[in-house]
Design a protein around this nucleic acid. Structure first.
Lengths: 210, 210
DNA sequence: CGCTTCTTTACCGTAACGCGAAAAAGTCAG
DNA sequence: CTGACTTTTTCGCGTTACGGTAAAGAAGCG
């Protein structure tokens, strides 16, 4: 059996590390971080500005980042945060620890699990919204990919960002397809004895080759 | 502690609802719930026994479940929890609200994002562990599917459980495939150029306002 | 004999999230 | 000019989630 229950020490504080990761790119203010977590990480992590600022304070207290005030005319002064060498080291150290596989944790699955105890109509509506959502995301990732990495390759420093987009793409596609399947199944349920023939999975060998 | 009916916004407390969903199947004790959340929901949701018990207490206080003590000989007495009509109604009501699409939130992606600031070797090791993990899960779902739904169909009440397994399957497959891709990419990175002089900071991005 | 299983509960912490509010400067539309 | 909105940061209220440590008490296993 695979055992991923080692002992990740100080554990889960990934939001702070996500911020550190963002700051490896360039120094940023809390406002910038909050606006777009840069358009890669922000897809997987969302956090409002209060959260960001609170985390920034903690990171500064730990000496992982350093704030430099930039006086602006016409706007409030801003605090541009830069990684300190300690912050860099902390990030490296954190990144060297094994990650914990995230669980799916989707409440939709809970609803489906109790399918015979809930109303199917709102569920179907919900699933359709979800389908749209995942399709949107998929298209967004595709656009980003073809814009930032038109030939499918990346310079060494950006390989990780490419991979991030690729996993997002794969995930959204898989879930969107599943949504279609689920909607169909629910429709078949509510329309009664009508049974659409389901194609067994072994025969559906869909390879997307572009 | 007075007001929990005024804010029916999108789903917050899902752990409690997951427990309610479990209890629609059959009455269970906290211990049973903690052991295996039944082998469908437990894959997507993991919670230790303290969490479960705490949640059970809350649910009982709300009148959503009802505990019935069963005296046992040879074992401690147990509390078998049953859904009350109020609990059923609450579950139905909760399930009728739109769900919030869960974000991915995987710290591995953060590590990858900051790829040029971290060590690749532990990352590659981590990815290989992850690959194994997702393959395990995939195989597990496959086994469960062929055991519980050998012909790929389910009685109406179990359609949701089938769908849950199917999305798990699709997800694990997609992520496992991505892991392979990522491992390959990282290997190419580390075996490749020994740091040819690449892009120092010659390009200071000018802010729109200085 | 000690160890594990069974079953529940308690109290400790803190990370994460969310909501509402507020400063103090400027821009821009009506 | 007024009102609304942007920019940027911060405070403080709350709840949910989760993690650890530990205590019970009886049974069964080796």
């Amino acid at each position: 059996m695979s055992n991923y229950n080692e002992k990740p020490e100080a554990g889960v504080l990934a939001l702070g590390d996500a911020i550190l990761a963002c700051l490896t790119e360039r120094p940023m203010t809390g406002y910038e971080l909050a606006k777009t977590f840069d358009n890669s990480i922000g897809f997987f992590w969302k956090a409002d500005h209060q959260q960001i600022y609170r985390e920034l304070t903690k990171l500064r207290d730990r000496g992982h980042i350093q704030g430099r005030e930039v006086v602006q005319s016409g706007k409030p002064n801003k605090l541009v945060y830069t990684l300190t060498p300690e912050g860099r080291a902390a990030l490296r150290h954190w990144a060297a620890r094994p990650s914990v596989p995230a669980s799916i944790k989707d409440d939709l699955l809970v609803r489906l699990y109790a399918l015979d105890s809930v109303d199917i109509e709102p569920l179907r509506t919900d699933l359709m919204a979800r389908l749209e959502h995942h399709r949107d995301r998929f298209a967004r990732y595709e656009r980003l990919l073809s814009k930032r990495f038109p030939d499918g390759t990346a310079p060494p420093a950006d390989v990780g960002k490419l991979l991030g987009l690729r996993v997002g793409l794969a995930h959204e596609r898989a879930v969107a397809e599943w949504c279609e399947e689920a909607i169909e199944a629910l429709s078949a349920l509510s329309s009664g004895a009508e049974r659409t023939n389901v194609v067994p999975i072994e025969d559906v060998k869909r390879e997307t080759n572009s």
